[in-house]
Amino acid sequence: MPRSYRIVAPNSVYHIMSRSLTEFPLFRDDQDKIKFLTLIKKYQMQYNFSVYAYCLMTTHFHLIISDPTTDLSSFMKNINQCYAQYYNKKYNRNGSVFRDRFKSIIVDNDNYLLTLSAYIHKNPSSIKKYKNCIEKYKFSSLSVYLGLNKDPFNILNESYVMSIFSKNIKKARENYIQFVYGCNEHSLMKAIEFQDSNSEYRSEKTTILKSYTPEDILNFITSYTKLRKWQILMKNKHNSSSNKALLIFLLRCLGHLTQKEICNFIGNITQSSVSQLCSLGTKLVLENNNYKNIVEDFLQFTST
């Protein structure tokens, strides 16, 4: 049977779920869950999607994601493939890790969004240890919603859902936990069945349109690094690898170019090298304070 067409639309919110193959553990320990959330952060930097809620369980995961473009399939494929490679290497196995492709539903209104978030956050209640204290489960976003923990991966945007309950943070937290615990699990399961949907929910996140040309981005990098274009683009120039990595990161993140398109723009570079340099660029933006504001700096640069 052919796969059904995946419905996507710019600036939409999606419920995403994926399960392990034949019910073996998708996450065998905490380090596996940490690795998965690290991958979400890595590709969030490249694709500019927002995460509204998440929960990682032993055999599956749930995400609520807002995608400003239509790159959902690209970044979820990258996340799942990278995790599968990590998993197979760690546990000395081969083959598929996930049961088929990930599932996604467009969230069509605020009521559905709230019910969905409650459903996701109640998942740990199936674990005896957390049956009556789901907020203590550390691989769910609920503890961040309630202010019990900070977001250790800096991936979560919980403010939109919480603002629906109250503009006052304390009141919103009180209302939300009452809402989650008060929701009937049977009703939640019925409401969150994966069915085809043609509707969409327009999020508050500003859409970053594909309006930035490769030349715009290259001009910014030359200004940002104080280097000439040929110094950045020259093949095998070792001391420019970081600058080329930043260029490729922005070409993916804001130019939304494919690896092949980046190869054509830069010249004398393979898709494998583009992938490696994009990973390096992401690492620099995430870990080096000199580059943590590069996206904001670029947007300011292009607005002047």
Rank of each mutant, 00 (worst) to 15 (best):
E261N: 03
V51L: 14
D32K: 06
A9H: 06
P214Q: 01
Y160R: 07
S12I: 11
E215L: 02
K131S: 13
R19F: 11
N184Q: 12
L146C: 11
L286I: 14
S303F: 13
K89T: 12
N293R: 07
P214M: 04
D151G: 13
L21D: 03
D196H: 11
I40K: 06
M45S: 09
K226N: 15
F102K: 08
F49T: 05
C263D: 06
N290K: 11
N243W: 05
D297E: 15
L188C: 08
G182Q: 04
F24Y: 02
K41D: 08
S211Y: 00
Q259R: 02
L284Q: 05
Q276L: 02
Q46A: 09
K171Y: 06
K167N: 15
A245T: 05
V285F: 02
S126R: 14
H238V: 08
M162V: 07
P2F: 00
S163Y: 12
K229M: 03
K205Y: 14
L233K: 11
K136Y: 11
L63H: 09
S273Y: 05
K90I: 10
M234T: 13
F298Q: 03
E174P: 02
I7S: 00
Q195H: 08
P68Q: 12
C55V: 12
N219C: 00
Q44F: 10
G95E: 10
L257D: 00
Q44P: 13
Y112Q: 07
D71L: 07
Y87L: 08
E23Q: 12
T70F: 01
I79Y: 06
K103V: 04
R19E: 05
S159Y: 10
K210I: 10
I269G: 05
T222G: 00
T222R: 01
C278E: 04
P152W: 05
A172T: 08
C253M: 04
K260N: 13
I221A: 01
I164D: 01
Y130G: 08
M45C: 11
D67V: 14
N149F: 11
E287T: 12
D29I: 12
I177H: 09
S96H: 15
T225M: 12
I164R: 14
S12D: 04
R228M: 03
Q231K: 00
I64C: 05
S279E: 12
R28Q: 13
S66E: 15
M17R: 04
S197K: 06
D32M: 09
G267W: 00
T58S: 11
T304I: 09
I177M: 05
L246A: 06
K167Y: 14
D216T: 00
Y87H: 13
Y137L: 07
S223D: 08
L209R: 14
L299R: 14
I192L: 07
F139C: 10
K89M: 07
